[in-house]
Nucleic acid binder design. Sequence first.
RNA 1: GGCCGAGUGGCGGAAUUGGCAGACGCAGUGGAUUCAAAAUCCACCGACCUCUAAAGUCUUGUGGGUUCGAGUCCCACCUCGGCUACCA
Length: 885
Amino acid sequence: MNHVAVDSATPAANAYEPTAIELKWQAHWVATQAHEVRDDLPREKCYYVLEMFPYPSGKLHMGHVRNYTIGDAVARYQRMRGLHVLHPMGWDSFGLPAEQAAIERNAHPKAWTYDNIAYMRGQLKRMGFSYAWSREFACSDPGYSAREQDIFLDLVEKGLVYRKSAVVNWSTGLNTVLANEQVIDGKCWRTGMPVIQKELPTWYVRITSYAEELLSGTYTLPSWPDAVLTQQRNWIGKSIGAEIDFIVVGFADVKLTVFTTRPDTVFGVTFVSIAPEHAALASIVPATHRAALDAFVADVRATPTNDRAGDTAEKKGCFTGAFVINPVNGERVPLYAANFVVADYGTGVVMAVPAHDERDFAFAQKYAIPVRQVIVPNSGKLNELSEAFTDIGTLIDSAQFNGQRSDAAKLTITDWLAATGKGRKTVTWRLRDWGISRQRYWGNPIPFVYGEQTGVLPLRKADLPVTLPDDVVFDGIGNPLAKHPTWATTTADGQALTIRTNDGPEPARRETDTMDTFMQSSWYFARFTCPDAVAPLDAKRVNHWLPVDLYIGGIEHAVLHLLYARFFTKALSDLGYTTVREPFKRLLCQGMVCMETLYREQNDGKKQYFYPEEVKLERDAKGKLISAVALSDGQAVTVGRVEKMSKSKRNTVDPQHLIDAYGADSARLFILFAAPPEVDLEWNDDGLKGSHRFLKRLWTLAQDQRQRLQSVSAFAGHAKECSGADQAVVRKIHATIKKATDAMSKDFSFNVAIAGCMELFNELKPDALSPEVLKLGLETEVRLLAPMVPHIAHELWSHLHPNSGGVTAAGWPSYDPDQLQADDADYPVQVNGKMRGKLVLPRTLVGTELEAAVRAHPEFVRILGDQTIRKLVVVPGKIVNVVVG
RNA sequence: GGCCGAGUGGCGGAAUUGGCAGACGCAGUGGAUUCAAAAUCCACCGACCUCUAAAGUCUUGUGGGUUCGAGUCCCACCUCGGCUACCA
């Protein structure tokens, strides 16, 4: 980055100096508590805008700056429209990086986290974001985490929390559970030690009991992006089908139930596949096949779960030696263990119909299993299947169902199965319960204890909160909480921890797992409405403010966070904390901040990335990039794709440098101007300079004209009362207000609103305009730009109106539709759809009068020449199109 | 494989929702200012044809269609991006 110092020479007396102005107004906003809001105003005059709160990782990155700039522009715009705006900010402050910092640089997670918060809070303030700082909190604050423990116990009481044993990835090096992403080639990503699959009891939240409402709710959110809604629907994954019971040959009392969405193909079953982990296998596999099967299961288990997924993975199976009976035709078919059958989806057993399922077809080919076609295309029977036929067709070889259409047969066969006791209609969900246990220190403790005799018990609310000990050792191995000498067995006042039983006190040990950090982000938006409440939530204030009118964040949270937050809201409602069932009325997913990557291919095929300031780019006369060389050695560098900014690719810009060099307003303006909010933003240093240049021009014009405009009032009459440049500019002012207002109210298209302001500014030629009209023009500029560049707008407004209540109070300007256009309209003339010229005609003319005026217009006669009119289309105020022939 | 989205100058992006394509900005070119540079200001700036200009031709991923008129609507296709995935 070539950050050029701004105005390095001695500045002129009235030069634009962003830093001084910005610090001045930021201090003013703090002193006047300008962005605090009351809770007792009519809801229809209120607006709650929220950006996804940050993890305090150290310093702001460009993604944060974009997210919060968009949110702040909305907040300030809504305030100028006269609404009372709640715009809070806080910190998602529990999480793993704090523990990594503890291991790597011997900092305490708490100190590291709160130091980061202090620094990043300063950066947010330096950007001029208009937060209600009195409501700020961090999730690791005792006031928040303790209230979350209360909610946890409420969930326990409602039956929405339970403990169960499940298979997890266990690092033998770190003695901890790993996420799938942390397992690389079956080994721990940090230590390289083997990762094993281990059964471990952990805590779950029963999100699946809300599956139906989470799904139906997606149809009540018209102001959410379709992409997010469909991702959530896919994630919930409701599928309607049938369960069918297969008896195991030789075990009259053992039945294997399959789940299928294609009961119409049940007469085509030629084998059944079963998950290798399935519990029933132990009892039904004959001794002759046990060894082979055990080897197969061991092989599957050795493969990390994420390598078993995807259609690229090889389909493998193993005959179990067992056979099952297809209940619809009494046929005996083999049972295969198959690596692609998932134990915890459906029943873990799948009826296989190679003729009508691609996976089954591939499997049947590999293991030479027969293929039996029971559905034919409506065009007739296929002679030989070279691939599975999965479309709708007509049933054959299916007893009394022959001749039915396959989609209708799904229902008739399911009904028949149910009537004859062979199966039943059923619904299966992809959504799993939410595992929330983390074997880590820097999280909210799970408020449970284990009695020596009694076993697992929740704490009583009176015994909350459970607080984290400060004296912990971080060596990267195992859970620091579990290794603490006394914490798990001692109460807050140092007594041995006991629970009360009928036989008196009983020694107990605390749960040392902590909660997933997604727990905290699932209700923080509700707590912002009442951060001082003694209870977790204050129903009156929560119901007043929720749902959030506009929630802004990245689309990467489309499923996890946004689904958990929806679930939590419903659960909180059922717990009596609120009546609201959906947390976010409107969702805006802003695009990523991107930049081109610069790299050099190494001998080993890996890429060596360069920071932008390490490379010199050369362009040809048209501006097209022709070469890139490293400054260090003058050798060529490859200019790669434009990708999301990331440290590992070195295609980053530190926002702090931009603020220091150009000021917060310039950074804000460029971010909003360079792309619409939902679109990816391609970072461009020169573009930022352009935004800075615009603000400088605006500033300079306002300073040059300050004396002249001091004693006049802005023009308040109708455009018709003035003439020449004045009249054109007054009309332009009204048109610009309309353009900006439409852009903001439709999709928050800040880029269009800003472009309109730039256009208007280009018309403000002081020598050609009366001071009244010029003042109106400048005032309009300042008011329209105030949400985007608040500091310079506040400063300039104070120059234009030294004793007023400020630009926010002045409000968003309104326009007069009657003053948008001149009396005469330009009519483009098309001949057979091609542009040929222009007519100027009064706007008042319509209908036959207008058509007569067009025909009589000398320019029209000239354009037409001697051609004869076949058809004449005249659209009032728009266009003339003549068809000649 | 499934779902979602996008293709407009050298680049980021506009286009009143079917009515003058390329607003605004960046980059670039020429000029003014300057000892010089930076900064600033003025002009030009889709392609082709043309000495230049006027005029003209072409142009919104490709091919069709509807219409007086299509970047916008319909049909088919191509390319790119994102998310998700042995889900039976």
